[in-house]
């Protein structure tokens, strides 16, 4: 079977993360409709709770992984020159890494 994050393994991770993202999004929509936080302090307190904090951290990782596999698939399909492909993959990786670091910072602030 697959080595690293390609082929079957990448396909499986993309679907697994999609399911988690979908379920957690449903929870977020339900939460913000049913009991919206009154102000920023309440939002920070909600986000700082261990269950939500862990859920959002996993959501962040799932989004990054899902986006990486998806964008990499598009680049594999359409970008043929190896150097250009590596450069674009590098840019995508940097962008996702920056987003991950930003999310980590937010979570560390409220955690």
């Amino acid at each position: 079977m697959s080595r690293g994050l390609s082929g079957f393994r990448a396909w499986l991770w993309q679907r697994a993360t999609a399911v988690y993202i979908w379920l957690f999004t449903l929870y977020l929509v339900w939460h913000f409709l049913a009991a919206p936080p009154a102000d920023v302090t309440a939002l920070r307190a909600w986000l700082g709770g261990p269950a939500v904090w862990t859920g959002v951290a996993i959501l962040g990782l799932a989004l990054l992984l899902h986006a990486w596999i998806g964008v990499r698939d598009v680049l594999l399909d359409y970008v043929k020159p190896p150097r250009l492909r590596v450069a674009l993959l590098g840019l995508v990786l940097l962008y996702l890494l920056a987003n991950g670091l930003w999310l980590a910072r937010v979570l560390l602030e409220v955690g």
């Binding site: 079977m1 697959s2 390609s6 082929g7 079957f8 990448a10 396909w11 698939d73 594999l76 399909d77």
Partner: peptide, 11 residues
């Protein structure tokens, strides 16, 4: 069939 191309290019 495994790997990034042979099967998994099907979208």
């Amino acid at each position: 069939l495994d790997g990034p191309y042979k099967l998994f290019r099907c979208h």
